[in-house]
Design a protein around this nucleic acid. Structure first.
Lengths: 145, 145, 145, 145
DNA sequence: TTTT
DNA sequence: TTTT
């Protein structure tokens, strides 16, 4: 029996993506993402920040490592996964991560142009877009009815 | 510049999916979906139903035509698309549709067993699941960190 | 029986919100929102823009009229509603709208500081936030247009 | 600066909700929720289940404690929150929870009629609905466990 | 610890 | 045109 396990986040990267290449040639990337919420408490603006562990696989990891950097604003869609691991003292611990299924960069063209990853001499064709969507399963065309 | 255009629905099919095969061999399916909302008005339970035009393409259309039928409860994720067309009197009109990107059947095994589309003599291996997820871009495996 | 009818959009306002005050003192605001999607077609970047009719009620309409303007980037959560109306020629037509349930402004603090709606002499206490979330309780009723 | 932190789940309760009344009179409820995913691996159906810690506050906790029980299928919308606590050995640990913002029961009327919480002699007027939506305003605060 |  |  199936269910739904979906997470939608808009926030800023706390660090550059950390990329690893596994034995089978599979790429994995991960980074922390902050989502902040501002609310009034006794007439004062309080900001509460939540940190999320984002994990991306294969093609998505490759694209993330190219385009995402510390500080960037990003929309992420994925699913929750809690896994256990042993720390250095061999104590079993749990982490909950968001396994990304697609992401979209939000923000300014200028952010990308200033970016250290965008070579200064790139052709206008190759310009990184203001906002950039990755969504492999996309479908379009004219509807016939 | 990109954005986000996402729809999430849980509701019942108003009709069996209508399937069409286009010239290029592409399959398209469509059906109406009802999402009902119940609320209290002056102490009485009022039900308000919203009807949605669901459209599915290619592989998703094929699976929908096999497993979905009038009355079934389904979770649908997709995007909004408004398109124009001419009616019989050549008047330009607009419709807003939900182009499905994946779906999950919700409900009971018994619903599927009673189903006219489930042949009585199928092996237990091929039994249609109580709930059934279609999500091509899915990714899993053990995380290496 | 209930269902789920949820829409999530991130896009730019096509116009300033249009605000109306109904007879009962209820405020309604509406504006078009564009969500753009960029994809590759035969090696070329193609941008496809979808336009959505956003409707906001009461408190949410008030806040929208204060903070949202043409061109701003906004996250909107709401539900789909299709309603019929008669055009000038008394022909029955249908529109599908997104009735907003909450929204969050995305973008730059500088956008807000430059804003014509932000008086230059406001105290720092009242400064409009870089991004700003509104999340009141849901609202419904008959749409007056 | 704000962001978006949203979780959407459809799954079954692993246990009855556990309800606590805090000193200030605030009610908190919590329960584990299972979301299962079925996929093909080498021609075999594999089921992977993810467990989520659901937390509900105040009015939402009250309604959950009345209507939700072990085994029920439910749609939950909420936000992620990771908090730290000390275990019995005074070791600092972290848990990630979903703080529910609203929920909808999915499933069959018969489920509710069989329910031990539905007194046999209630009038048909008071019958618990097949599916039932709760959508109060958001709630937050420090979790007491 | 759910569900099929 | 669904479902309860």
């Amino acid at each position: 029996m199936s269910g739904i396990n979906k997470v939608i986040l808009v926030g800023h990267l706390g660090k550059d993506p950390e990329v690893r290449h596994l034995d089978g040639g599979v790429t994995v990337a991960s980074f922390p993402l902050a989502t902040s919420e501002t609310y009034n408490k006794d007439g004062k603006r309080v900001e509460q920040t939540e940190w999320h562990n984002i994990v991306l696989w294969r093609g998505l990891a490759e694209v993330a490592s190219k385009y995402l950097q510390k500080g960037k604003l990003v929309y992420i869609e994925g699913k929750l996964r809690t896994r256990s691991f042993e720390d250095k003292e061999k104590v079993k611990k749990y982490v909950t991560e968001i396994v990304a299924e697609n992401f979209t960069m939000l923000g300014r063209k200028s952010d990308f142009e200033q970016s250290p990853i965008a070579p200064a001499n790139q052709s206008s064709e190759a310009k990184i877009e203001d906002e950039f969507t990755i969504d492999p399963s996309d479908e379009s065309g004219d509807l016939p009815f």
